[in-house]
Design a protein around this nucleic acid. Sequence first.
RNA 1: GGAGAGAUGGCUGAGCGGUUGAAAGCACCGGUCUUGAAAACCGGCAACGGGGCAACUCGUUCGUGAGUUCGAAUCUCACUCUCUCCGCCA
Length: 419
Amino acid sequence: MHNINYIRDNPIEFDNAMKLRGEDAISYKILEIDKIKRETQTVLQNLLSERNTLSKEIGYLKSKNGNAKNEISKVEELKEKINSLKELENIKENELNSILTRLPNIPHKSVPNGKDEKDNTFYRQWSSKPKFSFKPKVHYEIGEKIGLINFENASKLSGSRFVILKNQISKLERSISNFMLDKHTQENGYIEYSVPFLVKEDSLFGTGQLPKFGDDLFTAGDDHWLIPTAEVPLTNLVRNEILNINQLPIRSTSFTPCFRSEAGAAGKDTRGMLRQHQFTKVELVSVVEPEYSQDELERMLSCAESILKDLNIHYRVMTLCSGDMGFSANKTYDIEVWLPGEEKYREISSCSNCGDFQARRMNTRYKKDDKNILVHTLNGSGLAVGRTLIAILENYQMEDGNVEIPEVLRKYFNNKTLL
RNA sequence: GGAGAGAUGGCUGAGCGGUUGAAAGCACCGGUCUUGAAAACCGGCAACGGGGCAACUCGUUCGUGAGUUCGAAUCUCACUCUCUCCGCCA
């Protein structure tokens, strides 16, 4: 959510920022509502003040057994005016909120301008594309051939966009998540959490999924929603808190399933397990002081990258352009892993700085020099486990159809070298 | 699922129709004392918003929403959440 004071002071900059994100210029409308709201408020507050004074007099007179008839009838007159002004203030407040809560975050000045993913820019890469002496297969061919990835049975149980992993591949998924959590908790300074997979509306509002993107989520009825990412529970851990400065930075991580309805992705990536209604992910979340958030984004990115480096898989990092970023982000890096079977780079992590955008929605502040200041929040995948599994299958496949186990994962397999 | 209790400031916890924005304690900040620290003592310390260049001033907020009243943390209703006991259960 946006700071109304910023819009008041910088309406043109604000409109320009929104245009970069594909929104219409709307500051004139916001400021008009804001103006009426404040004028109403001023008149209302004067009347309230008058009422309060009179009520105190009445109390005083009554305690002295005096006659307060006059004062009481005066207050009764005020009441009507007060109520209608309150109503107007309320209406304007709601109008303002419904606009403000639906506008995306302002891009950081280092973010490239652009419309969609084609305008994302190259940031850096690590290692290079592996060479194969045979034609590498795509992940589902590898998995289905050895009978350990099963889509038909999954759709029997749950419909399309679900998958069943079996035996060594199931174990591979588990070992990947263990490896990631171990790395982040032991080397990267994150604290591990086990969190609820069902959350209430407030939490989803806090991180920005609601009110605008309910279609992308699954509901569990009774005001419970399935989390689309552990960002939601981890970030909302500090909702409505005033933190002590020495609690910062907070770095948390969690391994969870993620549930997404993929409402807008009809026909996209229907083959394989790249885009599922349910997938697992290790998430990283940071809560920091404002002045450190861009540094923290770089740090978080490095932590996510460290996983792929250890797995020895080639990837590149892209800076998302203004039009391709998620709703709450002011800057986002995507890590795209190389998939030799597909011969494509595919997103495996997305690391975002949300600035104070989520903090304002969540009302999360910290105390500094006697002032309450909104924190900055960041989140990133560290990494998407399902897609990491795909990357391992495709990058570590051998001509005979078997798959080598990456060295860092072998300890989870009794030092076996092949799946 | 049945029965009961509760929700007050960063935390604990009084208040139960009229200087109560809210006692007290803890935490925190400043000071005195001390070689330094601790202790002790003194002082400060809620959030959000409106108006004002500012000193300042006004309003709102005691889980959330509605209601009663001249006036509500205090009364009424609904909702949400927490806790205890019983049942069921991984």
